[in-house]
Design a protein around this nucleic acid. Structure first.
Length: 606
RNA sequence: GCCCUUGUAGCUUAACGGAUAAAGUGCCUGUCUUCGGAACAGGUGAUGGGGGUUCGAUUCCCUCCAAGGGCGCCA
């Protein structure tokens, strides 16, 4: 609708002799300002040397005339009349029929009101299409702030990337939540998506952990073998923290750790079996988390499969003058390009994180041929990725400009700082479990008669919804200040509130079981019209969220929809009126579809 | 030292350069024995300071202040 209105305004402006301007039509926040609005008149004021109000009024009068001509379309004589008057009219007859009123507001806004019939049609469409409603018919291009081509059709989204032998903390949880939602939004916008996860399973962090396991009695892996996976992984986190602390304080430990690192790369039998065993522990644990939070991957990449080819590629680049030797190491001279220098191969001969990335990129391109690779990464990696993207572009010109760093903000503790190096971390699963406990408390207070299985499902899905929504409602690159006590909420703008609203809809629908939902041609009251209007906007909100890679836009929308439904529910009896039943069913469907795009699963009752 | 990011009610967050800066939470006051109270309604309360560009600035530019991050052998 937005785009059709834009086209219409362009035609009207050309009628006024104005061409080649971009017309911006947006959804009106305030329903009193119409359903759609444009600021075009104000934008053109300077160019046309006329007061914005005059321009707006002129647009309005042409628009109103066009509407009245189209509304008599069935009368043959008028067809000739309108074609003579405006040649563009027939292209826009459908949009024009959807407009009920045009208003001009100071200092020059043009506000468009849609007919109730037009808005109601969308409700019927929701009921007809069900779960597939909201997926775009046309491709939604994505906005990468000019850093890459926005017309990609095949996009690899690389997210989560935890490291083995290290804790999976709430930062990873936010990364996964963000990545999963971006994947679903992109898919709903007509893109083909490849889900990738690049996991760090070689490097100094592993060596530190293994040093502790082989040198500290309190970190003896024999003590946890055969125990529950959570215990084994917790043990790994502690060993890593211990090894890391010693590494920094003790020179001989530093050297010994370096040796272990070399041994791992060399697959030395004195350490390799332990490495493989504990690596598998981490991967087993990650698999459980992915399942728990509704994520899966098409391809897991590992640093252990990129360090060799990465090194080879850097050596080729060294010959070609892309890389340079410096103090025994091989570096990329980023300073030549206004960036900074970084080491790609150490003087020991091992590929660093940067060097490994030179192996990853060609591997990804040869396997999937993506038009774009979206790396969901923290802000601290920003200057890092600028350097390696530059190096990649020079090394692999055929796939240049296809990398994009999508920043997700840190989850910062309100009190204290998080660091897996010192072992001060809030684990992802800890957060989920805390939320789950709180939901059990609420269920207990409500004295519900749910079975154990029901309670488990409600608590688990509710916890995942609460945590995910808490992350997604905030702008993706915004830092989140995290308070352990009141981290996730269950009231107001929260995941459980949305789940609750959905369950309430379903409950009402059950009560109204034998009423056939139908919008009919009943005149709508205030709340009904607002609700219908909001449902109407859903596909455009999804497109908007996908286009700007901003799940929080969808969060805001869904919360407004749920709140509006609850108000409507409060004021009007639903079960007996077919059009209200239809509105309720449509609200439920949109909530379900929207939450799905956020990676959140609904429950039928709670 | 150089570079990047961020500063909005007590707290957590919204707002393509647009209309009265929007919510949640907190606190205060109400609704309700109804189709689900994890609800609904009302009140309270904010753009770090100073300049500039613009018809119009939370948004763009400059500067100061404050916080965080990055800057060759970690990932």
């Amino acid at each position: 609708m937005k785009q059709r209105l834009q086209q219409l305004f362009i035609s009207i402006l050309s009628e006024m002799g104005v061409t080649g301007v971009a017309v911006d039509v947006v959804i009106s926040e305030d329903a009193g300002h119409g359903d759609y609005t444009t600021n075009t008149a104000m934008k053109l004021a300077k160019q046309l040397k006329k007061p914005p109000m005059d321009i707006a009024l002129q647009v309005k009068s042409i628009l109103e005339e066009a509407i009245s001509l189209v509304s008599h379309e069935s009368v043959d004589q008028n067809i000739h009349k309108k074609d003579q008057k405006y040649t563009w009219l027939s292209n826009h007859s459908l949009v024009l029929q959807d407009i009920s009123k045009v208003e001009v507001a100071s200092p020059g806004f043009i506000n468009i009101f849609l007919t109730e019939a037009s808005l109601s049609n969308r409700v019927s469409q929701v009921l007809k299409e069900g779960g597939s409603f909201g997926a775009s018919q046309t491709l939604v291009s994505i906005d990468l702030h000019g850093e890459a081509d926005g017309n990609a059709h095949k996009i690899m989204v690389e997210f989560a990337h935890p490291n083995t032998h290290k804790a999976f903390h709430i930062g990873h949880l936010r990364n996964i939540t963000t990545g999963e939602s971006l994947v679903r939004l992109l898919e709903a916008s007509g893109h083909e998506v490849v889900r990738a996860n690049y996991q760090g399973d070689v490097g100094m962090h592993i060596a530190k952990c293994l040093w502790a396991m082989t040198n500290l009695t309190e970190c003896d892996p024999a003590s946890v073998r055969g125990k529950d996976i959570h215990i084994r992984v917790e043990f790994l986190g502690k060993a890593y923290a211990a090894g890391s602390t010693k590494y920094e304080s003790d020179e001989t430990v530093k050297k010994a750790t370096g040796e272990i690192n070399k041994q791992i790369y060399a697959k030395d039998p004195s350490i390799y079996p332990l490495y493989q065993e504990t690596r598998a522990w981490s991967l087993e644990y990650f698999e459980g988390i992915y399942k728990r939070v509704n994520t899966h991957y098409d391809r897991f990449y590992f640093e252990s499969e990129t360090y060799e080819s990465g090194k080879e590629n850097v050596l080729v680049g060294l010959k070609n003058g892309i890389f340079e030797k410096s103090d025994g190491a091989i570096i990329f001279p980023g300073e030549k390009y206004g960036l900074h220098n970084r080491v790609f191969i150490t003087s020991e001969g091992n590929a660093t994180y940067e060097g490994k990335d030179m192996g990853l990129a060609p591997l990804q391109h040869s396997e999937y041929h993506p038009d774009l690779i979206l790396h969901v990464l923290g802000p601290e990696q920003y200057s890092y990725t600028r350097v390696i993207f530059k190096a990649m572009d020079l090394l692999f010109p055929e796939t240049a400009n296809r990398q994009f760093h999508k920043t997700y903000g840190w989850v910062k503790l309100k009190h204290g700082k998080m660091s897996s190096r010192t072992g001060q971390v809030v684990l992802g699963e800890w957060l989920l479990d805390e939320a789950k406990k709180s939901i059990y408390e609420i269920l207990k207070q409500n004295n519900s008669d749910y079975t154990k299985e029901d309670q488990e499902e409600i608590a688990e899905k509710g916890a995942v919804a609460a945590v995910k929504y808490a992350f997604l409602r905030v702008g993706t690159d915004q830092e989140i200040a995290f308070d352990i006590k009141e981290s996730v909420s269950f009231d107001g703008d929260s995941g459980p509130y949305l789940l609750y609203s959905y369950a309430r809809c379903k409950s009402v629908l059950k009560k109204a079981g034998n009423v056939l939902p139908s919008m009919g041609d009943t005149a709508l009251n205030t709340e009904e019209r607002l609700l219908t209007r909001l449902i109407h906007f859903y596909p455009e909100i999804v497109a908007d969220a996908a286009h700007s890679l901003s799940p929080n836009i969808l969060c805001t929308y869904l919360f407004r929809l749920a709140a509006l439904f609850n108000m409507f529910y409060q004021k009007h009896p639903i079960a007996s009126a077919p059009h209200r039943v239809a509105l309720t069913a449509a609200t439920a469907q949109v909530l379900k579809n929207g939450l799905h795009l956020l990676g959140i699963t609904t429950v039928e009752r709670m």
